[in-house]
Design a protein around this nucleic acid. Structure first.
Lengths: 232, 232
DNA sequence: AAACGCTACCATACGGTGTATGGTTTCGTC
DNA sequence: GACGAAACCATACACCGTATGGTAGCGTTT
C-alpha cells in the first residue's frame, strides 16, 4: 500500500500539488463564485494551512492563471484537417459553452501570462486558418475579430440579469415597475423592452448566432477576394 | 461669504457629496488603477474618515456603479439626425477612446444596475437605428453585435502587454527568449509572432477597424435585404 | 432661552484578505 | 543514526469593507 508523505491523521488523501490546488480552486469558484476562492478557503479545502499553499505556488495570481488555463483546456481544440469555417464555429460555440459552465472565468479573461492550454488552443486555431490558405494578416484579423466578439458577448450575457434558463422573466416585474418612468426619460429603450426583450420567445443568448454567422460571412468574403486576387 | 456646514479647520473646500466622491474615485482609478480605489483611500482623499463615506453612499458597490456611469457620460452620444452607419462608427470609436482613457472601466463593464448616462446612451443609439428604418429585432442584433465586439476588443487590447504607444516592442525580448521553446511546442504561434506581430509596423490597435467595418458592412447588407423584402 | 431634530461627521471594532518571516516535522538516503 | 530536502505550520502585519453606536454643529420650534 503506497502512501504519500506526511499522512499523520487519516485526513489527507491525494498529495497537494499546484495542479490539484488549481483544480480545487476551480471547484470552489464553480460552487460559490470567484470571491469564494481565497488562499485560506483553498487551503482549508486541501486540509493544509494557508501558508503551506505557498510551498506549491508563488501566490494567488498564479492560481488564477492556472484556473484560466484549466478553463481553456476544457475547450474544443480544432483539429488540423477541419474546414476552417466549421472549425471557427465550433470553437466559438465551445468557448461560449465552457464560459457558461464557469462564469467566473469571464472576468479572469483579461489576465496576462497564458498557460499551455491557452497557447495550444491559439496555435491550433492559427493552424487551421493557415491550412485554409489564409494570409498571415488575415489570420490576425479573423482571430482578433472572432475572439473579441465571443469574449465580449460572454461578458454582455453575464451582465444581464438572467435566470438559469436564460430567460428574462425573473426581472420582468422590476422592469415593468420602472416602465412608466423609463417611457418618459428613455422612450426608445422602453419601446425596445416591451416590443422585443420582454416578448415571450426572446432570449438574449439567441443573439449570439446572428453575429457569429455575420462575422464568418464577412471573413469568408474577404478570404475569397484575397484568393482570387492571388490567382489573377 | 457663504460656507458649508462643519468647516472646522481650513482643510475642507468643496462639500462632500455622492457625486464628488464618485468623481474623486475616478481620479484615483485613473492615477493608480482600480485597486487603488478603497473606501479608506477615497475617504482620505476627501479629508473625511472612512465611515463618513457611508453617510453619502450605501456602500462601495454604489461607488463603482457611479464610476462606470461617469465613464459612459464621457462617451459621444449619437444625435438623432445622423446617418446610422456614421453614428455607429463614431459610437464605437468613442467607446474605444474613452475606455483607453479609463482602462479600469473595462473590468467594471460587467456590472449590472446601469446609471442614467448609460441608459441615455443606449436610448440614443436605439433611436438612431429606428430612425434609419431598422426593425426592432434588427436593432437588437446590431447592438448586441457591435457592443460585444467593441467591449471584447477593448478587453483583448487591455490583456496584451503593450507599452503606452500601443507598440509591442517592450516585450519583444521576452518573446524572443522563449521563441526557441515556442517553435517546438507552438509552431504556428511562433510563426505568427515573427512574421506578423513583431514586424515593425504592426500594432494590435489597428485590428479594430477591420472588424468594425466588416461588422457594419454585414449589418448594412441585412438591413438592405429587409427593406427590399418589405418593399416587395 | 431652551429643547429638539437633522445633517454630517467620527471612533471603535469585527471578520475577512494576501503574504512576509521564521520555525518544525517527516521522509528517503547515506 | 545523522543529514538535507520536502512539506507543512504559527505568528504577525498591513490592508480591506462595513456594522454599531456615538458626537459636533446647525436651524427651527416652543
Amino acid at each position: 500500500m503506497p502512501r504519500g508523505p506526511r499522512e499523520t491523521a487519516a485526513a489527507t488523501r491525494e498529495p497537494v500539488t499546484r495542479e490539484r490546488a488549481v483544480r480545487v480552486a476551480v471547484e470552489l469558484a464553480d460552487a460559490g463564485g470567484i470571491e469564494s476562492v481565497s488562499m485560506r478557503k483553498l487551503a482549508a479545502e486541501l486540509s493544509i494551512t494557508p501558508m503551506s499553499l505557498y510551498y506549491h505556488v508563488p501566490g494567488k495570481e498564479d492560481i488564477l492563471d492556472g484556473m484560466l488555463d484549466v478553463v481553456y483546456s476544457e475547450m474544443h481544440v480544432p483539429r488540423p484537417g477541419v474546414e476552417w469555417r466549421t472549425a471557427m464555429l465550433e470553437r466559438a460555440e465551445s468557448t461560449r459553452a465552457v464560459l457558461a459552465r464557469h462564469p467566473w472565468a469571464i472576468s479572469l479573461d483579461a489576465r496576462t501570462s497564458p498557460g499551455p492550454a491557452t497557447l495550444g488552443h491559439l496555435d491550433a486555431t492559427i493552424g487551421v486558418l493557415r491550412a485554409a490558405g489564409f494570409s498571415m494578416p488575415l489570420v490576425g484579423h479573423a482571430m482578433s475579430l472572432l475572439d473579441s466578439y465571443v469574449q465580449g458577448f460572454a461578458m454582455q450575457e453575464a451582465t444581464l440579469p438572467l435566470d438559469a434558463s436564460g430567460d428574462i422573466g425573473a426581472v420582468t416585474e422590476d422592469i415593468m415597475a420602472q416602465h412608466q418612468m423609463m417611457s418618459n426619460a428613455f422612450p426608445n429603450l422602453a419601446e425596445m423592452a416591451v416590443t422585443l426583450i420582454l416578448q415571450p420567445g426572446y432570449a438574449y443568448g439567441n443573439e449570439f448566432e446572428f453575429g457569429l454567422e455575420l462575422i464568418l460571412d464577412g471573413i469568408e468574403k474577404v478570404h475569397r477576394q484575397q484568393v482570387e486576387a492571388a490567382d489573377a
